[in-house]
Design a protein around this nucleic acid. Structure first.
Length: 659
DNA sequence: CTAGGGTTAG
């Protein structure tokens, strides 16, 4: 079986018709012994259909090849099964051959054949040929319309899908007496999926109304798609309402809802729902559920829960499922365990581009760019084609480690060697890298030459670089862009304030503060998470909500005494609030990551590594403090901030103070 | 006796 599949994965140009790619094997022959008449087309159809429906696409095509070898003429029900198998294998070449054969036998106007063809072309990414087939169908039915609409959605053409749906509605009203041309619940799920891709609240609400009016609201599949559409445009409450109102939930609905919370960073709710699902007992969790739950563990750093799910994955024999496997890698490295991620990666038999990319991203976030690049080179050697996101991970890895030349090399060759046009994320990495390496003007030139519109990440990187390299002029320019792009984010105002303060331009500092106060901008509250005995504890700045908070503050005081003995001076520029010097120092002292570190040290045995997750970037003062703590208390401390990992050990950080 | 949809990973 593997021998047959390998050339398909490599995209070798052969076909079911010419080079016997799916040549008859013993398996198919033995299947045939069950059938009385091998000269009967219907017998062949049963076999091909059964194999295709059972997911044995390769065998189905082998049977189809055998049938053609026996010089039997396929009929109109043979083709849809064969084409469906090409679609499942993403085998455009064989699909086109099947199309030619169908034309030769005069089956193209057939509704079943053309729907299968539309689906096959769309799944293979060939929208143009799909649309040609669609356009020549004289009397389209609901399946033809749905196949084409769904095809657009699958190829990220949500708007095209929605406009086609409008045409469908016109046709529906014009053919009012034709029972074949009527919107049904399957069509509506595709339309809702288009809404989900478009992430448009207004459209989603409109389609929701339509669904209710046509009486499809109670259909499970429609409900799932609606939940997803609301979630994608950020309407979690509306999404949950649909879930709660469903009278019938299969596994699908639970999975969708868990995934929605996990994707939106609400790990607690996602894991709570997962627990409810298990308790409920009516629904079985599967690979999809476990992947979503693993994502929740990854973003909240819930290692214990993640390991538990990993155990379950092994018990259910799902280790070879490539999506689940990739989720496990993602969970481990995001919980700070890059070695465990590597072990899981190493064990996986089937790795796809996303698996490799996850591992590259994992090493990259941990500042281990060399290993990330090794994985990248190995991926290329193995014959797996890197994609857009792979290059984002590669460039990000270089950017975390300051590898300017390496990054520039891949940035320049990704288009020429792999035909991947650099996008906004790639520019973001390069601007960041150039800027921090001191090439601020060069970074600015690059931004001006971009084909895509620079976003807040790009301008934000430039602004950050301007602070490091004291470039007030460019900083003002970048900040102006940022105030336009993201007016409610006070981080940029704070950064510009700092830049003015560094340049001792106090009047400008004052002016910025007035603007900030006038606009009522509030700093995004920072928080840190730390897992202890399987429970994740959360701390915010100056938090007094934790049951142990009194002891934590006492302990923190003791830590500060030791730090000051070691010569530590607080770096108050991290605090821009309009407060007195002493107050600034106090605010700094109670940053959430410091509370989390104190809590971690207090509650764990000497020698235990402490893992912390922070939602924002770690500030300079906290970075200095944690380095010192790692030395004074002889503890390894791992901090995941909004952008990368910091491994503190013996007074040093893995980022080399470059972050 | 054949065709279309909704959930998961980077």
């Amino acid at each position: 079986m593997n021998e047959v599949i390998t050339p398909i994965a490599r995209g070798a140009p052969s076909s079911i018709f010419f080079r016997n790619r799916y040549s008859t094997n013993a398996n198919v022959v033995s299947l045939f012994s069950k059938y009385v008449d091998r000269t009967n087309v219907w017998s062949w159809n049963s076999v091909i259909g059964e194999l295709a429906r059972g997911g044995d696409s390769v065998e189905a095509l082998q049977a189809f090849a055998s049938m053609r070898k026996a010089s039997l003429k396929p009929n109109r029900s043979t083709f849809p099964c064969a084409i469906k198998s090409c679609s499942a294998l993403l085998d455009l070449f064989s699909g086109k051959q099947a199309h030619q054969q169908a034309l030769k036998f005069g089956y193209e106007p057939d509704l079943f054949v053309s729907s299968a063809l539309i689906d096959m072309y769309c799944k293979c990414g060939d929208l143009g040929d799909a649309r040609k087939v669609f356009d020549v169908i004289p009397q389209k039915n609901v399946v033809s319309w749905t196949s084409m609409i769904a095809g657009y959605v699958q190829n990220d053409e949500g708007r095209e899908a929605l406009s086609l749906f409008k045409k469908f509605l016109v046709e529906e009203s014009e053919c009012a007496r034709d029972a074949e041309v009527f919107v049904d619940s399957v069509a509506m799920t595709s339309v809702l999926s288009a809404c989900s891709h478009a992430s448009n609240e207004v459209t989603t609400k409109g389609v929701h109304g339509f669904v209710v009016k046509r009486g499809f609201y109670g259909v499970v599949g429609v409900g799932n798609a609606l939940m997803d559409a609301y979630a994608k445009c950020g309407k979690l409450a509306a999404s949950r309402k649909v879930f709660d109102e469903m009278t019938e939930r299969d596994d699908f609905s639970w999975n969708s809802m868990i995934a929605v919370y996990a994707q939106n960073g609400d790990a607690a709710e996602a894991l709570q729902l997962f627990a409810n699902m298990i308790k409920d007992g009516d629904s079985d969790y599967n690979a999809v559920t476990l992947s979503a739950a693993l994502l929740a563990c990854a973003c909240s750093g819930a290692l214990r829960a993640g390991k538990c799910i990993h155990d379950q994955v092994m018990k259910m024999d799902l280790e070879d499922n490539v999506i689940v496997g990739t989720s496990i890698i993602d969970m481990y490295y995001k919980c700070g365990r890059v070695e465990m991620a590597w072990r899981a990666f190493d064990r996986m038999r089937d790795k796809n581009v996303r698996t490799w990319t996850a591992m590259i991203a994992g090493y990259g976030m941990h500042g281990r760019a060399r290993e990330a690049l090794e994985v990248f080179y190995e991926m290329i050697r193995t014959g797996v084609r890197p994609n857009y996101v792979t290059f984002v991970s590669v460039l990000a890895a270089c950017s975390h480690a300051g590898l300017v030349d390496e990054a520039w090399r891949w940035f320049s060759s990704m288009f020429h060697e792999y035909n991947i046009e650099p996008g906004i994320e790639h520019y973001g990495c390069i601007v960041d890298l150039l800027g921090r390496a001191g090439y601020v003007s060069k970074a600015y030139e690059l931004i001006n030459g971009m084909k895509v519109k620079p976003d807040f990440v790009v301008w934000g990187s430039l602004l950050g670089a301007c602070r490091t390299h004291n470039n007030v002029e460019l900083a003002e320019l970048a900040a102006r862009k940022l105030f336009e792009l993201d007016p409610d984010n006070c981080g940029y105002y704070v950064l510009l304030c700092n830049i003015y303060a560094d340049a001792e331009r106090w009047e400008d500092v004052e002016r910025m503060r007035t603007i900030m106060n006038g606009r009522g901008l509030v700093k995004t509250p920072g928080y840190s998470l730390v897992e202890l005995k399987g429970r994740v504890h959360m701390f915010s700045v100056g938090d007094k909500g934790h049951p142990q908070h009194e002891r934590i503050y006492e302990y923190l005081e003791k830590i500060y005494v030791k730090l000051k003995q070691a010569g530590y001076l607080p770096n108050i520029t991290s605090v821009v609030h309009d407060v007195e010097h002493e107050e600034k120092e106090i605010t700094l002292q109670v940053h959430s990551e410091k509370l989390a570190v104190a809590f971690g040290i207090m509650n764990s045995a000497p020698g235990t590594v402490i893992h912390i997750i922070k939602n924002l970037r770690v500030c300079t003062d906290c970075h200095t403090v944690i380095k010192l703590i790692s030395k004074i208390f002889n503890r390894e401390i791992v901090v995941r901030d909004a952008k990368r990992f910091h491994h503190f050990r013996n007074g040093l950080c893995s980022c080399g103070d470059y972050w």
